[in-house]
């Protein structure tokens, strides 16, 4: 019963993990055989690569800004939704729906909305006499524009929080109300302790997801640049404007699958593994669902 899964883990997890480490010490372009070059790839990665640190910095921005902002926003909406007494189902569906929109469609939508020339957002700003910014075409605003998109599609996290909030026993609130606790105190002493595990879980899984942030950023770049890639390929469109949306995983894609420097891409992968492993360890230590003990009850 387990054999297929074990084979799957061996073929698609253990082997490639080890092979990535091996390839990271080679020069390999898939056409000729891998050629051992020792630490050269790592030397280039840490000393010479012109874009890797900017890419890592962009990814870090999404980890450090996007993840918390999304969580706070999802938490606030979930909190509001617990208060709604009428048409609860309608409200929940409304706020959840954007999370359903396929990511590529949502990015195309936002690049269109914030398109500086004829996009509705700038048209509306203009009606108020405001000269709208360049949004996805401005290196300083491209990431914040994606953050707005992130907030729009935060519904799945919101649902998790909502379920957690509804789990908080009602009588606790009533009792504390009788005790004269105000809203802030209720939030701090009752709501948060009950929902902290959920929050932490969402935070760490959010961070791991942000480390691999790829789709939204790359699609936003290629759609916003409006450039026709006649003959270069997908990788050439990544990062626009001025590499402000170039994330670490996109850089890995470019080196690996646009430039076909698979050895160097593997070195980038190994570094990503090391960073992800830190968060993984944190997650594994902290959360009971991920420890196998329950299995053999």
């Amino acid at each position: 019963m387990l054999a297929p899964a074990v084979l799957g883990l061996a073929l698609f997890f253990v082997y490639p993990l080890l092979a990535s480490i091996y390839y990271s010490f080679t020069r390999y372009n898939l056409v000729s055989d891998p050629q051992w070059i020792g630490l050269r790839n790592y030397q280039y990665l840490f000393a010479d690569d012109p874009n890797v640190w900017q890419a890592a910095g962009n990814t870090l921005w999404f980890v450090a800004v996007m993840v918390p902002v999304k969580l706070v926003f999802a938490f606030a909406i979930a909190g509001l939704l617990t208060r709604a007494k009428t048409a609860t189902g309608l409200w929940r569906t409304l706020y959840y729906l954007p999370a359903l929109v396929p990511p590529v469609a949502s990015v195309v939508t936002f690049v269109f909305l914030f398109n500086p020339g004829t996009g509705p957002v700038n048209l509306i700003l203009k009606a108020f006499g405001i000269d709208g910014p360049l949004w996805f075409n401005d290196p300083a605003l491209a990431k914040p524009s994606l953050l707005l998109l992130g907030i729009w599609v935060t519904g799945d996290v919101m649902i998790i929080f909502l379920a957690g909030l509804l789990d908080v026993p009602r009588d606790l609130y009533e009792a504390s109300g009788l005790d004269g606790a105000n809203g802030v105190q209720k939030l701090w002493y009752i709501t948060l302790p009950t929902i902290v595990p959920v929050l932490l879980f969402s935070l760490v899984t959010g961070i791991i997801a942000a480390l691999q942030f790829f789709t939204e950023a790359s699609v936003a770049s290629s759609v916003a640049s409006g450039k026709v890639s006649i003959g270069e390929g997908a990788g050439a469109g990544f990062g626009y404007p001025e590499n402000s949306l170039l994330t670490y995983t996109q850089w890995l894609y470019i080196r690996g699958f646009s430039n076909y420097q698979l050895g160097y891409a593997s070195a980038l992968a190994v570094l990503l593994f090391v960073v992800a492993a830190v968060f993984l360890t944190l997650l594994l230590r902290r959360f009971s669902a991920f420890t196998p003990d329950e299995a053999t009850r």
Binding site: Y23, L30, Q212, F257, S266, A269
Partner: peptide, 29 residues
């Protein structure tokens, strides 16, 4: 080995797919 297997599954689930992308791509290629 159940514990090791389970932990392996958790790691495989949470690891960014880009970490193992190159060898898997080479394999399919």
């Amino acid at each position: 080995g159940a514990n090791i297997l389970f932990t392996a599954i958790i790691i495989a689930m949470l690891l960014p797919p880009q970490v193992t992308a190159v060898p898997i791509y080479v394999m399919w290629s």
